[in-house]
Design a binder for these strands. Sequence first.
DNA 1: CCATCTCGATACTTATTAGGTATGATTTCG
DNA 2: CGAAATCATACCTAATAAGTATCGAGATGG
Lengths: 298, 298
Amino acid sequence: MDLRHLRYFVTVAEEENIGRAAARLHISQPPLTRQIQQLEEELGVTLFIRTPRGMELTQAGELFLAEARNIRALVEQATERTQRAGQGKLGRLDVAIFGSAILDVIPKLLLNFRNAHPDVKVVLHTMTKAEQIEALRQKRISVGFNRMLVPLDDIEIKPVATEELLLALPKEHVLTHKAHLRFADLRTHPMILFPTGARPSFIDKVIGLCTESGFQPVISQEVGDAVTGVALVASGFGVCLVPESATTLQFPGVVYRRFTDAPPNMNVDLSCIYRKEDQSPILAAFLLTVDAHGHRPP
Amino acid sequence: MDLRHLRYFVTVAEEENIGRAAARLHISQPPLTRQIQQLEEELGVTLFIRTPRGMELTQAGELFLAEARNIRALVEQATERTQRAGQGKLGRLDVAIFGSAILDVIPKLLLNFRNAHPDVKVVLHTMTKAEQIEALRQKRISVGFNRMLVPLDDIEIKPVATEELLLALPKEHVLTHKAHLRFADLRTHPMILFPTGARPSFIDKVIGLCTESGFQPVISQEVGDAVTGVALVASGFGVCLVPESATTLQFPGVVYRRFTDAPPNMNVDLSCIYRKEDQSPILAAFLLTVDAHGHRPP
DNA sequence: CCATCTCGATACTTATTAGGTATGATTTCG
DNA sequence: CGAAATCATACCTAATAAGTATCGAGATGG
């Protein structure tokens, strides 16, 4: 039995006449007669009573008509849904983020993507950098977001945003009142660094900048993420260098200051990573959204 | 797209390997490769990632796999159900009965049929003889039960049972105490006759018997059916000739008596009627049940 | 009441397409 | 680096669906 048989059968049942049905199907009458006979023979059931006026469904035929229509509708629906899935418009995307990345750029990105692809279920997973790479390789996720990524053979790195580094410091701190804040001013002030965990990471960027400026940072405390860092700033543990997006965190007693001598390398990247060989249309659509988002003035 | 495509697709998805799938399908590998390509082309969707280790479903492929399995199961179910319908094991049978036929033989018959064909929904309609014939012709019913039927061109009549006529009479009636009740004894006793309505019917049978015995019945009352007749016997309106099956009706104060001189024609038939050209397997199954039921000692 | 029409069935031919054989291209693995 | 495994391609054969012409049984209408 074929879907053709069902199509033919439904048409004959609707027209109650083989000739008219054949015309509607754009074939001639004899093959249609034969296909119906074939269907009846295969089922072992008489589906039509042949009368001199045409074809009349038997009770079994009535039942089969309902089933055939249902099956045809399901086939159409399956086709449509599969095509939508193939175009990246239907399905699921597992995305990994790191602790404090959920601050500014990524939520906007996800919101854009959800608006453009409402039937793609985006599932967020919080993972460290190492966990993200392992999860990518095991295909538990399709995209990860992170900073300070080192190239790998099988993982593509796509820059999403570059953020300037700002200084988070207590409202009453001596540096707060300087007209021109320079990076070298940090030399003697205790600093909160983050994140602990896998290297290289943001912490190395900060230490590198200090070294370039000719000093070793005075480390007050190492913490897990920017949120904790800024919380400690509020508590007077010291100052903390944070990416610009962290300014979303408004702590009472904490202010953010830009450096007036910011060198070109004094910013930190945010990238997304995915398997190089991943051809998933949903990923492709997601990367398009990332591109669209990325094109904004520096 | 064909059901073949679905079958092939599901097999390849299950084996994750075209060669093994081809073996399971008892075809060679190249045509299977082509059919899968064809399916992908028609859908416009990549269903598999080809790797040197085999075929791996894409996300769209996973979705299509679920749909394809579902469709295949439905096709199988549709086939099965249609075949059961074609064998008269599934469907609906509309049966007409007359007022008091629901007393003995017909309920037993219907019960037998329901046990043998539990998935055939039997729908009972109460109709007069004329209504039954009209409903048969309009295909609103498939079978009718009645008595005293006259042959028609398009309607087949199949005898179901022959019942002796008994006399229903009040417990205190003078005839109750006669050792040998003869038909001619009815000559002077007021009788209740039934049914009113289309002729010929049971009433004509009774009048005919009286005429044969050489008298005109004294008509006390004409009523619609046996139930009403026996009820009036209980109320003292007179005696009433009823088919044997009416003895199921046990009224206080009413007794039934057999005639000792019952002539061969002193019984009444119960028949079923159906369209001569009706080839419905459900009807055929029902008539088989009627035959099986009919074979019982007189 | 017979000619005519309608409808499905059949016989035969043609065209399409599924399936088979042989082989190629590529990757993995010992 | 050779061998094995995997899917893809080219080409041919076989199965089957579709087309043409015609038949035969009932209805229809002058």
